[in-house]
Nucleic acid binder design. Structure first.
Lengths: 110, 110
DNA sequence: CAATTTTGTTCGATATATAGAACAAAACCA
DNA sequence: TGGTTTTGTTCTATATATCGAACAAAATTG
C-alpha cells in the first residue's frame, strides 16, 4: 500500500469530513495550497510543505508528522518493533554499533 | 529544559561528532543553512525548514521529526529507538533478513 | 611561532512554498 | 428546472527556504 503524503492527507481529511476550506481554516493554510499538496500535478513539480505547516496539518488530522512523512509506515508494526528491539538491545555495544553502521550504509545504497 | 529546534540539531550533531559541513553532506543541505537553523539570529526571522529537509536531518541524527518538532520532547531512549527502527524498516527485505540473522546469532554468542 | 586546514559565519542570488484571488464543478434546494 | 451555496481547481504574486561563495575564527601541524 504505502500511501503518498497527499493521499494520506486527503484520506484523513475526508475521514474527518472536512472540506479543503475547512482544513485550511483549521490548519491555518490556504485551500489552494492544500489542494496542491493532495494533488501533485504530473507537469508541475511536487510541493514540499514546511515542517511547520505539516505539524499544523498533522495536528488537525490527529496524526503524527512522522506518520505523514514515512513512506513505509504500517499501523500494525508495534509488535514487530518491540520484539526486534528486545533482541537488539541485548547485544553488546560493539555489535550494536556494527549493526547501526550496516543499516546506515545499506540504507543509503540504491 | 525543552530545547529549541536549533538547539536539538546542534546537540545531536555534536554528539555524533559532525561538523556543519559533515552534517550538510550527509543530509544533503548546505552548511550555511544548517548554521541558520542552529543559530536563529535575533534580528532576522527564524528559518523554518521544509519537512523534507527536516526528515533528512532527523535521519542522519538518528531521531524522529516528531521529536525535533515537539517543543516538549526529551531525547530519551524511545526517540532513538523509533528512528533506528524506521531506518531498519526501510531496508529492502534481503538486507533486513541479514540484519535479523546477525542479531540472532550475535545474541546467542557469549 | 607561521602556515595550512578545518570549522563556523555572513550575505546576496535563486528556487520554491504559500496565499489570494478568480474560475469551474458539483451539491443542494425552491 | 433554475439559482444559490458549497466544494474543488487553476493562475499569479509574494514571501521565504535554501544554496554558493566569500570571509573569519579556530584548530592543527611542523
Amino acid at each position: 500500500m504505502a500511501l503518498s503524503l497527499g493521499e494520506k492527507i486527503q484520506k484523513h481529511r475526508k475521514e474527518k469530513g472536512y472540506s479543503l476550506d475547512k482544513l485550511a481554516e483549521l490548519s491555518e493554510s490556504s485551500k489552494s495550497y492544500l489542494w496542491e499538496l493532495e494533488n501533485p500535478r504530473p507537469g508541475k513539480k511536487a510541493v514540499k510543505p514546511s515542517a511547520e505547516k505539516l505539524t499544523q496539518i498533522a495536528s488537525v488530522l490527529s496524526v503524527t508528522t512522522d506518520y505523514l512523512l514515512d513512506d513505509t509506515a504500517q499501523p500494525d508494526e508495534e509488535v514487530v518493533k518491540e520484539a526486534f528491539f528486545r533482541k537488539f538491545s541485548k547485544l553488546d555495544p560493539k555489535d550494536k554499533e556494527r549493526i547501526e553502521e550496516m543499516i546506515e550504509s545499506w540504507g543509503k545504497r540504491k
